[in-house]
Amino acid sequence: MQKAIPSTEYANEIRSEPIEHRFNPYSNNGGTILGIAGEDFAVLAGDTRQTTGYSINSRYEPKVFDVGDNLLLSANGFAGDSTQLIKVFDNRLKWYHFNHDKKLAISSAARLIQHMLYGKRFFPYYVHTILAGLDEDGKGAIYSFDPVGSYEREQCRAGGSAASLIMPFLDNQVNFKNQMDPESNGTKKKEIRYLSLDEVIQLVRDAFSSATERHIEVGDGLEMLIVTKEGVRTEYFPLKRD
């Protein structure tokens, strides 16, 4: 398709070029995810709504996966890339087992994911990735990644559409940011301590029900995968569907 563009005020000078109408290989499929590490457990939770634009595609399309070896993985953002990333990881893990016949440590899994993401540095997976599990000492671990593979181990991290809504809440409630020791009369910071699993579950539920209130792409259901040394278990809580 061509369009004629009068390039100057000289009317007979006409420039012609194809109309640029590039195919956009990405879409934003909404949703949000959240991982919190405890002393001997880690949780990775995500809402189950999938959207494109103002449409709700599905009210139950899980995006947090138990990928084996006591690892939880979720990639939130463009759903096409998300499924692909997890599929590729599944495959890489399978081959790791074939080749080395041992469990993939979470630190190694994290480095592998960095390579997978950076490998597509110039056509990135459009996702915010969170990996959860237990480290070599049995302590809860959360690794979070940007779309091109920059990563870091953290105590907690929210990703996806409502990340900016949830993250400050987490800073305050998990890492006790801006909290003072009530005894000290505002002179001493509140001491950091591990949260119990029950506390964390309640925190995650509160985070998601609040995000549901404030963000249109978040809602319908909350699926929480919990990893302990006993293995992985799943819990589901309904969220508002509006």
């Binding site: 990405y26 879409s27 494109t52 595609n57 399309e61 499924t83």
Partner: peptide, 8 residues
Amino acid sequence: LLGVAYSS
């Protein structure tokens, strides 16, 4: 067309 899949 983007390879986004879902069921409902």
